[in-house]
Amino acid sequence: MRVTTRNGRVVLMPDESDKPLDVHQLSEKQFRSLGVANVAYVRPALTEDGEEGCAIHAADGSPLAVVEDLETAWGVILQHDMVPASLQ
């Protein structure tokens, strides 16, 4: 909301940023950034030791960590108040 005056009175006006987004008009980059702070996904990967493990990525694909197993990955995600998703 923004504050303005009209005829000497203070009036609250809706701001453009208050309007809901139309997801059909988002760019690919904007769409990928949705949920970045809230959703993390897990996929198979190799650990630093060359062992099979799990990679944790943000919703936009940014790598966050590599851990030993799926249980540990989900624990780490939940510990950081994120929602886990698995890619198989």
Rank of each mutant, 00 (worst) to 15 (best):
E28T: 06
E16H: 08
A40K: 11
H24T: 03
L46S: 06
K19L: 10
K29P: 12
T72H: 12
E51W: 07
T47G: 01
T72M: 11
T72W: 08
C54P: 09
E51N: 13
L34M: 09
E28Y: 12
D15A: 09
V10D: 15
F31V: 02
D60N: 12
K29T: 15
V11P: 03
N38S: 15
L34D: 11
V39E: 12
D22Q: 01
Q25W: 03
L12R: 09
I56Q: 02
L70T: 13
A65Y: 05
E52S: 08
K19G: 12
E52R: 11
A65V: 04
E48S: 10
A58N: 13
G50Y: 00
V36R: 10
G50K: 01
M13N: 04
E51D: 13
H24N: 11
E71H: 06
D60I: 05
A37G: 09
A45R: 02
V67D: 03
R43L: 12
S27Y: 01
E16T: 07
G50V: 01
L46A: 06
Q25G: 05
D15I: 05
E71W: 09
S62R: 14
S33L: 14
M13H: 07
V11S: 05
G53F: 00
K29Q: 14
A45G: 04
V66G: 02
V42F: 07
R32K: 09
E71L: 09
L70M: 09
D60G: 08
E52H: 13
V36H: 05
M13F: 07
D22S: 03
S17M: 13
A55S: 09
D60K: 11
C54T: 03
I56P: 02
D22C: 02
P63Y: 00
P14M: 12
D49V: 05
K29N: 15
A45Y: 00
A58V: 07
A37E: 12
M13P: 06
K29S: 15
L12H: 10
A58L: 09
E68R: 08
P63V: 00
L46D: 06
E52V: 06
T47M: 00
L34Q: 14
E52A: 13
A45K: 04
E16Q: 13
G50H: 00
A58G: 08
Q25V: 01
D15G: 08
K19Q: 11
T47Y: 01
E48F: 03
D22R: 00
P44A: 15
C54W: 04
D69V: 00
A45M: 01
V36N: 14
P20W: 01
V66F: 01
V39D: 08
R32P: 06
L34R: 10
L26V: 00
Y41M: 03
V23I: 15
A37S: 05
V36D: 06
F31P: 03
L46V: 04
E52L: 10
S62D: 15
V23Q: 15
A65H: 07
S62V: 12
A55F: 00
H24S: 15
H24Q: 07
C54E: 11
I56D: 04
E48M: 07
E48P: 01
A59H: 14
M13K: 10
S33H: 13
